[in-house]
């Protein structure tokens, strides 16, 4: 019941936060736009003058893509580098925004003034917790190291199960089992970090490492419930991805080429905005769950 209640509260709270959804969408959009700009310039320079550019309107044509890749490999490398730098910056901005999201979500109902000055409260919180959350990200490397060690340990197990690679079907299944294990671990680490951040904000704790250790303990003590809540939210995300995919595949054809480009773009941005909503739902639901545990 506690899990379902937390899930419901999280969904409700996220829906009541359109401004925060907008901030999260905007963050994502700006980074996407940066890559778009670089890539658009690159395309204009590499293929813009060619008749082959028309083929890009129809579908992704690998023969054209390979030509670009081979003949403009240095520019492509540069593009990859830009992408990498953007990912790093995005990570830092995300760490920053966490503080804002949690500051808003943890506001007591009576804090009307703070709710009225939402942007100010949001960015104050973001600034306040940035240093602590950044340290938390560094401590999280311990978990990522463990993740890679587990993966390494799976290698000999795989060899054993597949008869050193000679049992193809076992190899095939084992590959997917590894993917599932990998995803499970990634989600587990994310969940631990979510609770760590919640604990830091709720307790206004400066002892980041201690909070980190405490939440690892908490997650494993309440393993079934924390996991159930997390996977309910993951399931929500999957359902929306399917809805988006179906909607995108069934978009009507437009007579105007501009509409052919613009409408899918609009749908895509709605999807990204939903991702923002889901992020808030994750934080909110887990916050409610954390508070319900503290109440015991």
């Amino acid at each position: 019941m506690k899990v379902l209640k937390s899930y419901g509260s999280g969904i409700k709270e996220a829906t009541l936060q359109p401004k925060m959804i907008f901030i999260l969408w905007l963050r994502n959009f700006i980074f996407g736009l940066a890559l778009f700009y670089v890539f658009f310039r690159f395309l204009t320079w590499s293929i813009g003058n060619s008749v082959l550019a028309d083929s890009l309107l129809e579908r992704f044509d690998f023969s054209v893509f390979f030509e670009i890749l081979v003949h403009h490999d240095e520019a492509m490398n540069l593009l990859l580098m830009v992408g990498f730098v953007l990912i790093l910056l995005y990570f830092l901005v995300s760490v920053f925004l966490y503080g804002g999201i949690l500051s808003i979500l943890t506001l007591p109902p009576e804090a009307k003034e703070e709710r009225r000055r939402l942007a100010q409260t949001f960015f104050q919180g973001a600034g306040k917790f940035f240093g602590r959350f950044f340290r938390l990200s560094i401590y999280a490397l311990l978990l990522w190291v463990a993740f890679f060690l587990i993966n390494l340990l799976l290698n000999p197990l795989g060899k054993l199960l597949t008869g050193n690679g000679s049992n193809e079907w076992m190899g095939f299944y084992f590959f997917w089992i590894r993917v599932a294990i990998g995803l499970f671990l990634v989600f587990l680490i994310r969940m631990i970090l979510d609770y760590s951040r919640i604990e830091i904000v709720i307790l206004d704790s400066q002892a980041v490492f201690l909070s980190f250790l405490k939440t690892i303990k908490l997650v494993f003590q309440q393993f079934g419930k924390t996991l159930a809540l997390y996977y309910l939210l993951v399931l929500t995300g999957i359902i929306v991805i399917i809805v988006f995919w179906v909607a995108n595949s069934n978009l009507p054809s437009f007579s105007s080429t501009w509409m052919t480009v613009f409408i899918p773009f609009l749908v895509a941005q709605l999807f990204i905005a939903f991702q923002g909503w889901l992020k808030i739902a994750f934080q909110s639901a887990q916050l409610v769950f954390y508070l319900s545990l503290s109440a015991i």
Binding site: L35, F39, A268
Partner: peptide
């Protein structure tokens, strides 16, 4: 066409 291609990539990146 270039716009469409670049927007496709943008969305994937987003």
């Amino acid at each position: 066409p270039l716009l469409k291609c670049a927007l496709d990539l943008m969305f994937k990146f987003q």
